[in-house]
Computed example of a mutant assay.
Amino acid sequence: MPERTEALGEQGAAEYGTAELPHDSAALIAWLTQLVRSHENGTLAELRRAGEPTNAQIRAGWFGGEKHRELFERASFLFAVYHQGRSVPSYGFDSLGGAARRIGTGKEWGPANPGAVRLVSRVVASRRVPWRHLQHVVTRLRSLDKAPPRWDQLIEDLVKWEDRSARVAYNWSVDFYAPDQRRGK
């Protein structure tokens, strides 16, 4: 571990300790959006590749620190899936539950759409991070040309997923089923 102490400097090593480097979701999103802006399609394709870790996946994992490396690699996969073929990055908005309200067709959107309800139910019922279902949400939003969830918030929520006191799944459900503000107008 002496390399890490040297890289951080004495003050950084004292501040963060040598056992664990902090994660930085904002820096990951900055890097990913720059890949989209600069049309680094090969690197984005590497992030979507399954199997042996690619250079791009490993680089994305660095932003997760020691503890959240794999989570950051997988979150960058979701980002790359959404941005496949796009030349302008989307930072997204809302939580995943709020973003899922944008799933649907015709007059049936969000809680009025049975497919969206089933998808959100699968996501929030999972005790572990439901990667496959998250991919379905992101893919659905992409296919509908709807904004994704706010990427940095999504990552922070996933970091806290198994912390019951954070109530991430519950908060996503609340956001998904929130009353439509336009009804009162």
Rank of each mutant, 00 (worst) to 15 (best):
R150N: 13
A13T: 12
T105S: 09
G51N: 06
V123N: 06
K107Y: 02
W109T: 03
V137M: 02
E15K: 14
Q11D: 13
P22E: 02
L21I: 06
P114N: 04
W172V: 05
E156Y: 03
Q34S: 15
Q11H: 14
L32N: 07
G184E: 12
A60H: 08
Y170N: 04
R140I: 00
H133F: 09
H68P: 02
F176K: 01
V123D: 08
R102S: 12
S87H: 13
H83D: 06
A30C: 01
R142E: 08
I103T: 05
R167L: 06
H39K: 15
R182D: 15
S76F: 01
D157K: 08
P53C: 02
W62S: 08
V159N: 11
N171C: 02
V81A: 03
H23D: 11
R74G: 01
P22R: 01
G51I: 03
G42H: 08
N41I: 10
V120L: 09
G92R: 00
A13K: 08
S87E: 14
T33L: 00
E156Q: 12
R183K: 12
G104K: 01
E3C: 00
R59Y: 04
A7K: 11
T18H: 03
G42R: 09
L21M: 12
P89V: 07
Q84W: 04
A116G: 05
P2D: 11
Y16H: 14
G12K: 04
G97L: 01
H136L: 10
H68Q: 06
R74C: 00
V88I: 09
R122C: 07
Y16R: 02
R86T: 09
S126M: 06
G17C: 07
P149A: 10
L96E: 07
G92D: 05
I155C: 04
G9V: 11
A27V: 02
G12P: 07
V168M: 01
R59A: 11
G9A: 07
D157G: 10
F63Q: 09
G106T: 01
A26N: 12
S90D: 15
L134P: 07
D175K: 03
Y170W: 03
L8M: 15
S173W: 03
H133K: 12
D152S: 15
Y177K: 06
G92M: 05
A169Q: 07
A147N: 12
E40F: 07
A26K: 13
A125M: 02
L32W: 02
N113C: 14
T5S: 09
Q34N: 14
R164H: 11
T139Q: 12
S95N: 06
A125Q: 11
A112R: 14
L144K: 09
R49Y: 01
D94Q: 06
G104C: 00
E73L: 05
L96K: 00
E162K: 13
Q34A: 14
E73T: 14
R101M: 00
W161C: 13
G106S: 00
G65D: 06
H68V: 03
E10F: 11
E15W: 13
S76K: 06
P53K: 07
W31C: 09
